[in-house]
Measured scan of single mutants.
Amino acid sequence: DIEITTNGEEDAKRVIKELQKRNLEYHIEVHGNQWVIKVR
């Protein structure tokens, strides 16, 4: 598993777009303004 910590929603959406392009499965956890994306 890979864990990507982003700085808020805009940053997270940019990362998610890339993950979707590669058809990767991911899970999002929001901790305040930090979005942690866990990639399987």
Rank of each mutant, 00 (worst) to 15 (best):
K38W: 10
V39K: 00
Q34I: 15
H27A: 11
R22Q: 12
D1Q: 11
Q20C: 08
E10K: 09
I37C: 04
E10M: 08
G8Y: 07
V36A: 02
D11L: 09
N7T: 11
L24N: 02
V36T: 06
K17N: 08
K17A: 14
T6N: 02
I4W: 08
T6E: 02
N7R: 10
T5H: 13
I2S: 05
E10V: 08
T6Y: 05
Y26Q: 00
I37M: 02
E25H: 14
G8T: 15
R22A: 10
V36F: 07
K38Y: 14
G8L: 06
E3K: 09
E3N: 07
N7E: 12
R14A: 11
N7W: 15
V15E: 02
R22M: 14
E29C: 11
T5R: 15
G32K: 04
V39P: 01
K13Q: 12
G32R: 03
T6A: 13
V36D: 00
K38P: 00
E29G: 02
W35E: 00
I16T: 03
N33E: 09
V15W: 12
Y26N: 00
K21H: 08
N23W: 05
K17F: 12
K13A: 11
N7V: 10
I28S: 01
E10T: 07
K21F: 10
I4F: 09
D11I: 08
W35I: 09
Q34L: 13
A12S: 04
K13Y: 14
L19F: 04
E25Q: 13
R14L: 10
N7C: 15
Y26F: 13
I16K: 01
K13C: 13
Y26S: 01
T6V: 15
K38F: 13
T5S: 07
K38C: 11
H31F: 11
N7F: 14
R14I: 10
K13T: 08
E10Q: 09
R14P: 03
E3L: 14
N33K: 07
N33F: 09
V36C: 04
L19K: 01
G8M: 05
Y26G: 02
G32W: 03
L19P: 00
H27L: 11
V39M: 04
D11F: 10
E10I: 08
W35H: 02
G32Y: 03
I4E: 01
I37A: 00
R14S: 06
E25V: 13
E3W: 15
G8E: 06
L19H: 01
G8K: 08
I28R: 00
A12T: 06
L24T: 03
E10Y: 09
R22I: 05
I4R: 02
I2Y: 15
V15L: 10
T5C: 14
I28P: 00
I37E: 00
E25K: 14
V39Q: 01
K38A: 04
E10C: 12
W35T: 03
D1S: 11
K13S: 07
E29K: 05
V39T: 03
H31G: 03
D1R: 10
D11A: 14
G8W: 06
Y26K: 00
K38I: 15
D1Y: 15
L24Q: 04
E29W: 06
R22D: 04
G32T: 03
R14M: 10
E25P: 11
I37T: 00
G8R: 11
L19M: 04
K38L: 11
L19A: 02
K17T: 09
R22C: 13
G8C: 11
I2R: 08
R14H: 06
N7A: 09
E29V: 10
E3M: 14
I2W: 15
N23P: 02
H27V: 15
I4K: 01
H27Q: 12
L24F: 06
E18F: 14
T6W: 03
I37K: 00
R40S: 09
R14N: 07
I28D: 00
V15T: 04
E3Y: 15
E3A: 09
K21Y: 09
K17G: 08
K13W: 15
L19S: 01
E10P: 05
K13F: 13
I2A: 05
Q34E: 07
I2F: 15
Y26R: 00
R14W: 14
Y26H: 02
E9R: 09
K17L: 14
E25S: 14
V30K: 11
Q34K: 13
E9F: 12
Q20I: 14
Q20V: 12
L24I: 12
R22E: 04
H27W: 14
G8Q: 07
I28V: 13
N33G: 11
N7S: 10
H27P: 00
I4P: 01
Y26M: 03
G8I: 07
G8D: 13
E3I: 15
R22H: 11
E9S: 07
L19T: 01
E25R: 13
V30H: 07
T6H: 02
Y26T: 02
I37F: 08
N23R: 12
A12H: 03
R14Y: 10
Q20E: 14
I16W: 02
N33P: 06
E18P: 01
Y26P: 02
W35Q: 02
V15Q: 02
D1A: 11
W35N: 01
K21N: 10
D11R: 08
K13P: 01
L24D: 02
L24G: 02
K17E: 12
K21P: 01
L19R: 00
N23L: 06
A12V: 06
E9Q: 07
E9H: 07
N23E: 05
H31N: 12
E18H: 08
E18N: 07
E18L: 14
D11M: 13
T5E: 05
G32D: 07
E25I: 14
N7I: 12
